[in-house]
Design a protein around this nucleic acid. Structure first.
Length: 410
RNA sequence: GGGGGGAUUCCCGAGUGGCCAAAGGGAGCAGACUGUAAAUCUGUUGCGCAAUGCUUCGGAAGUUCGAAUCUUCCUCCCCCCA
């Protein structure tokens, strides 16, 4: 007999940072059963192979899976190569573009390289859903579709909204949730994790498994991590993300730029700081005992430590303080090679230099930056857009607050 | 199959013959302030070493001294009816 205390402890750990577990008591009994029988649970996570960079938002779910692995369970990652050819309509107001199979293959590979930074490779299996979905023939598809009603599919918010707003919905998109649900059937998964945007799809998995006479999976919903802007969900396309493979300094800096209001969420979902402590920090900020900036530095340090090391985190913090608190120049600055051809009479036009450095997308933009007083060389502001400069090796070109470059003469 | 509406700069959206590189908002960028937070204020946001210059308003052709605006054809989208 498995001690209830152990299960309770496990449940408490697993509950952290989840919005909803449907149903919670089923997870409890699955954990117990698994422990008694010595058979690991199968955790399913579907990844859409469109975004090749895993960021902290994806990491929320991956880290939860890791907790399951640490409890002895098995993770199955489904690369949705087949479903990507449909395009998940979740959270999209427009129909997604269809990916080529080459893109999918290379994206999937990048995923594999990245997820093992969080997951235990020994306890992770990767499968492609084309393995079973690709084998269905048209009759099979129809039989599958027959198990779900149109009304059921149209319950889904984005379909309902699109329909009422008069935006298009492709027939193939209606089948998306069915495909994903069928993945659960094919794998006989015990638990499926996903963001709230996946709620509909994951619950449909339960329905379909029941239809196929399987024990339905437990659905675990994780919040969608808000991006660095504090407004929209973290996503690569919005550029408000922190990739898990980014350098420590970069990560630290990006994390320092989040709005204060999202700190508690980041603490809970992206760090391992115990929840009691997280609550203390939040309270401390409210009462004025803790400076929000200090809380944020701690947060950034905690997160950087997970993906790099404690040392790297400390170093990133001192670098951050150097550059932004003390307004000094960063220690490692990328160099800007300046070829001879850029020179005219031994001088380089400032606008030319900026586009050479990649700090401006066009000469017009470069000109604007100069006129707005954003550009300096060795701390000396340049405001005349037609300025011609005599350059020396090692001079520091700065644009705005963030961009630095070191002049390197060819 | 029939009828109607629509496609504008990164996004939304105004513009129905010259005053339009195109209002307004969002987003971005820069400056001030600051904790690289938020809020706020200011400037800026097609290209161009800048010129009464060049290229843009779904695509092509046309009318006109002149077109985002008018005409024709095409492509795509939406709505209503069947």
């Amino acid at each position: 007999m498995v001690s209830q205390t152990i299960i309770d402890e496990q449940m408490e750990l697993l509950r952290r940072g989840t919005i909803e577990i449907v149903p919670e008591d089923e997870l409890c009994s699955k954990l117990k059963k698994s422990r008694e029988a010595g058979v690991p649970l199968k955790l399913k996570l579907g990844l859409d192979p469109t975004a090749p960079d895993i960021h902290l938002g994806h990491a929320v779910v991956l880290r939860k899976l890791r907790q399951f692995q640490d409890l002895g369970h098995e993770v199955i990652i489904i690369i949705g190569d087949f479903t990507a050819s449909i395009g998940d309509p979740s959270g999209r107001s427009i129909t997604r573009p269809v990916l080529s199979s080459d893109d999918i293959a290379s994206n999937a590979k990048t995923y594999e390289e990245q997820y093992c930074r969080i997951l235990d490779k020994e306890k992770t299996r990767v499968v492609f859903n084309s393995e079973w979905l690709g084998k269905l023939d048209f009759a099979g598809v129809i039989r599958l579709a027959a198990k779900i009603t149109v009304a059921r599919v149209l319950e889904r918010d984005d379909f309902a909204n699109r329909l009422s707003d008069g935006r298009p919905i492709g027939m193939h998109e209606l089948l998306y949730p069915v495909c994903q649900a069928y993945d659960s059937v094919a794998l006989k998964s015990d638990v499926e994790l996903g963001g709230m945007d996946q709620k509909f799809n994951i619950l449909m998995g339960r329905d379909l498994q029941r239809e196929f006479g399987q024990e339905p999976q437990v659905a675990m919903f994780m919040p969608i991590l808000v991006g660095l802007d504090g407004l929209h969900k973290m996503s690569k396309s919005l550029g408000n993300y922190v990739g898990i493979t980014e350098p420590a300094n970069e990560m630290f800096g990006k994390l320092m730029s989040i709005p204060d209001s999202v700190m508690p969420q980041y603490y809970e979902l992206c760090s391992d700081v115990p929840m009691d402590e997280v609550r203390e920090i939040s309270a401390g900020i409210l009462s004025g005992k803790i400076h929000p900036m200090d809380a944020k530095k701690r947060l950034a340090r905690e997160i950087v430590s997970i993906y790099h090391s404690a040392e790297a985190a400390t170093a990133a913090q001192s670098e951050f303080e150097r550059v932004f608190s003390e307004r000094e120049i960063p220690t490692d600055i990328e160099s800007i090679p300046v070829p001879e051809s850029a020179f005219k009479d031994g001088k380089v036009w400032i606008v030319k230099l900026l586009s050479l450095a990649g700090f401006a997308g066009s000469n017009s933009e470069a000109r604007r930056l100069v006129e707005q007083g954003a550009v300096s060389i060795n701390g000396e502001k340049i405001t005349n857009a037609s300025a011609e400069l005599v350059l020396e090796n090692g001079q520091i070109l700065r644009v705005g607050k963030l961009r630095f470059g070191k002049i390197e003469l060819a």
